[in-house]
Amino acid sequence: MSQTYFLTKRLRSLVVLGVIVLVCFGSSVLTQFNLSQGIAAIPKAIVWGFSNFYPTADSLAYLSDIWAKMQETLLVSIAAAVVAAIFAFIFAILGSRITKVSNFLAVLSRAFANLSRNIDVSVWSIVLLLTFGQTSLTGFFALFIASFGFLTRAFMETIDESGTDPVEALKSAGAGYVPTIFQAVVPSSISQIMSWILFMIETNIRAATLVGILTGSGIGYIFDLYYKRMDYHAASLVVVVIVISILLIEQLSNYVRRAML
């Protein structure tokens, strides 16, 4: 009996593996992607990168321009995450099974959050570009909407996990709805919520480059500008600045996380 059990299990794995191989092969045929050519191109790309894509002393002249754009990007990313967090918290409260006011509002807020989350930030950038044009406000809104969707979902789960028990206790003591949220739900979930906000800021800074290229603002815009001018030295300096900023922000948020626990 156990023989057939393991046999069927192995067979199932084999079938799954077969399907994956088939899908890979099929899609590369359809797109005329050649794996060996792709791999062969890697050394060439590396050689090109090392011979062109590095900052030179001349390109350092651009540093103050780049830094100004980087600052703008950082601020927009943080602002988008924080403002989104405020809205997300309200929607999460309405959507969580523990704190929902009515089923209708809960379903509505979940649907709204899912809509904004399941559409990628790049799509939002393009959509908003058509309405607002090339301003840094467009980038802000794109990041805001994507952050809002993600954070609503994350907050909702955090609140769900914090449990009904304290809420039941405060309700039975006669506490109103809003005090119950601030005295029971917030203290139980605040450190998790802060952690999600920090994560969102990091994610936004990474996404901001792409959003900037699409919406013509911030660090992405300046990268695009240098790149299209074929000023690869300056463009590479932008990349270096982005990498350093992300690493610094990550260090900072890890520090904040530890301090909060």
């Binding site: 405060l170 003591a173 006669g174 506490a175 109103g176 809003v178 005090p179 119950t180 949220i181 601030f182 005295q183």
Partner: peptide
């Protein structure tokens, strides 16, 4: 909390 107003209850 049952004896508190919304504001003073929320702020503890």
């Amino acid at each position: 909390l049952g004896y508190k107003s919304m504001l003073s209850g929320s702020l503890g």
